[in-house]
Design a protein around this nucleic acid. Structure first.
Lengths: 145, 145
DNA sequence: AGCAGATACTTGGGAAACTCAACTATCGAG
DNA sequence: CTCGATAGTTGAGTTTCCCAAGTATCTGCT
């Protein structure tokens, strides 16, 4: 195995590891707020009213899956479905008051955890962000080699 | 929200995003090899014979969950349980021949995908690795500030 | 106008993944 | 040798997720 392959392997492992901790912290917070992971994740991704399709795209999952997740959120009284009068196929997800509150709690607690995890010098954080952005977004053509 | 908070938020989002792509690729490969995600993940984490407890630690989940996952792997004939004669409580997970084969396939295909994803200059990859390692492992005390 | 195909969402079926509590078997220490 | 810890399993229940099929609605084309 070449040295470059080695770096890629380590990289993949590290990303999984860091993301794992992030996710674990997030799930713990969600559990404290009495929310299953997927529902919590959906919740934080809801700002203004948005069609369910958008949520399916963000979560990168099947539309029928979103139906189930939103059912859960609705059962808990955190969102409501409102059919778009302009296009009666789409239903906009609207946060209830309690939904907003819960979302904010979740968001700020998650941010605290994230800040604790990324406990490195600010310069390193910025650099890390930029490098990850380059990986996530191949448009900034810093192409191979 | 301070600029530092902003960076942390972006960082968390990016890590999730990159890990998401990695995981998505992994799951696709697993599906091609007729393996559900969790079983595939367990499989790649099996090298030599190891107690089920170790796997539970690595996967950061309940022991009973591992029972189910290993049941699946065993049903597919990829793994066998062997009780440790020295401590008859523990069962070592041993890869079958097919299990080894499948694990190798999974590993190399996943590596290819990872290499494609981390398509940035080698120097950046190394730097990214080092930064992530610092985040993942707080021992190398590059502490806050 | 009106029809054909796309799109948004739901439903039903089923597999997995996961947690919790309780249980068995075994180990290790005082 | 008994008490407390540990490895693993079992059972129950919830959640997540995909697929296939179905309904309602929209849009483009003729």
């Amino acid at each position: 195995m070449s040295a470059q392959d080695q770096v890629v392997t380590e990289l993949a492992d590290l990303v999984f590891q860091v993301a794992g901790r992030l996710r674990q912290g997030f799930n713990a917070i969600a559990a404290e707020l009495d929310l299953p992971p997927a529902q919590a994740l959906a919740l934080v991704n809801l700002r203004g009213p948005a069609p369910m399709r958008d949520l399916a795209d963000v979560l990168a999952c099947d539309a029928s899956n979103v139906t189930g997740i939103v059912d859960g959120l609705e059962r808990r009284g955190l969102v409501t479905r409102r059919t778009d009068p302009a296009d009666r196929r789409v239903k906009h997800l609207v946060l209830t008051e309690e939904g907003q509150r819960r979302r904010d709690l979740l968001g700020s607690a998650a941010h605290l955890r994230a800040a604790a995890l990324f406990n490195v010098p600010e310069a390193d954080r910025r650099q890390l962000r930029d490098l990850l952005a380059a990986v996530a977004d191949p448009s900034g053509d810093t192409r191979d080699r």
